[in-house]
Design a protein around this nucleic acid. Sequence first.
DNA 1: AAGTTGCACTTAATCGATTAAGCTTTTATA
DNA 2: TATAAAAGCTTAATCGATTAAGTGCAACTT
Lengths: 333, 333
Amino acid sequence: MAKISLKDIAEKVGVSTATVSLVLNGKEKTGRIGKEIAEKIRLAAKEMNYEPNNLARGLRIGRSNTIALIVADISNTFFANLAFHIQEYAEKFGYTVIITNTNESTEKMGKVIATLKSRQVDGFIIVPTEEGEKYIGELQKAGSPIVLLDRYFPGIPICHVVVNNYHASYEGTKLLIESGCKNIGLLIYKNQLPHIQDRKRGYTDALLKAGIFQPDMIKEIHYESIQEDIMRSIDELAQGEHPADGIFFATNTISMSGIKRLLQLNKRIPEDIRVVCFDKNEAFEFSKMPIPCIQQPIPEMGRMAVDILIEQIKEKKAAPVHIELYATLLNDM
Amino acid sequence: MAKISLKDIAEKVGVSTATVSLVLNGKEKTGRIGKEIAEKIRLAAKEMNYEPNNLARGLRIGRSNTIALIVADISNTFFANLAFHIQEYAEKFGYTVIITNTNESTEKMGKVIATLKSRQVDGFIIVPTEEGEKYIGELQKAGSPIVLLDRYFPGIPICHVVVNNYHASYEGTKLLIESGCKNIGLLIYKNQLPHIQDRKRGYTDALLKAGIFQPDMIKEIHYESIQEDIMRSIDELAQGEHPADGIFFATNTISMSGIKRLLQLNKRIPEDIRVVCFDKNEAFEFSKMPIPCIQQPIPEMGRMAVDILIEQIKEKKAAPVHIELYATLLNDM
DNA sequence: AAGTTGCACTTAATCGATTAAGCTTTTATA
DNA sequence: TATAAAAGCTTAATCGATTAAGTGCAACTT
């Protein structure tokens, strides 16, 4: 059975495609189509199982009702959850979401943006890569509605939705201090992304205020050699002369590998060492160790991103907004 | 800056859009376009930052170079990983992947299929819901290329890629038996999906062969009340007169909650009770408990699905294939 | 010289839906 | 009764790219 088009319906009912289009789009009033004909058309459409061709529609009206979601890694729970909520919410407004990965590669982000642009998506929600300003800037110049999510570039005035990473990190570190830790390490990625820098500052400031900051307790992880770097860092922190009695893990991936390593070294949590992690993880409930963590408001982040993106799409005037949500420190784990 | 079209380039260079189209599609040979003009066109296209409109292109050539991936839950690691690999692989063939959730709702699957069809996707990779035969059947009748993934309907001759669930389950249960368990429970969803039934049969047959099958050791979980059902089931299995000394968990979601409950009941693994889980989970490496698990070949599943889908798209003749991969039992965890 | 062939493009139809503008016919108004 | 207004539909242009079928011209053949 070939695809049914407006034309097929028009022929069957004996009217023009214009009439059919008007009726099926609920514009009988403004199009002044008679009740009987309208009914006939609707019936025929149903009978023939008509489904509009959205490519044609999009081409004509200049919108595709599609938004692009570009994340760094869909297999990361945090992003997968974000994707889930964004999709659920966007659907309510009639938008289809195309999810794409960049694997933290700026080059890939460039390619992906080009592909999606040529698919005429109406807007972009992007978790940008570190060196990605260039592509994001170009995209903005080209007039595409954009919302950055989870990360942003202070230099570029562009809408973004993030959590207050500084605050979350500060509170997390404070918890370790209040638990009595004196020797607190940080495991964090080595990059210039502001959200990472914010987390670093949060940690640093909390320790400075307590008067126990030691620069060499900060261990930076390279994205290309995550596993080895984490192992080495944990080994250094946990097995030195003055071993750490607390560690703040700045991302979920780092947390997982870091804690695994601690367990391998037979460190007991919290007896030998305390930890606080960024991002909640199902695995934490899996052990009896207390693993306080910073829970990001994922559903809200997704919803806000969709809301302001749609606003941009509708309004066309893009007054950049900075939206900052607060994370929750979960201490009962 | 408005969008650049073929026409803009044509005007600038002083040729027809046909010429531009031929050149930019690399058909100068067959289109017999002069070298100089071709060069000029390519230059102009680059200068003007031309990006083809894929809606128009798709409308004209009847393909969108897009495939739809419909999964039950993108926030489930198993599906998120599948999605990741499918996307990576499909990209190599120039396909964009649209990922969508159904949340195990057949109604939603129907809606989602309609939406995607109207977006003219070239083919579907679907993890179908339990009662979804109807929609899948209709989709097939409409002539859409389809590959079912992870699950299938024995009644409908349609391409699918699955693991040998029976075998995996049999082996997993056998491991428990060989470890000395006499009283082995099963936690599994209550539904008629063949892959679930296969897992059940694998468990049953292994126990029958060992002569220790007891029907009431099978606990069925309702999807709508997962948490409560799992709790109750674990409580029944672990705390009865003859408490279970082994449990086979039939899915990753069930495993997580099930083991959490066992820990809450202060059961020691493996001293008090042994477990085997379907699907590998990062969390397992998190504890020192030995948790053998069945690892599905996710990348291969994804690749196979893409391969046979593309074949269908190209060939148009859809000889249904049944592709069965083998899972690996990981015992060193 | 007439016809054939090859080259370098152009014309124009097409995909399917939308919509401003136009054309009848009916109904309301003066 | 003449005229304006409203109702009910159709025409045709349009979105941007593709491509079969031309067109015109030079070169080559016999």
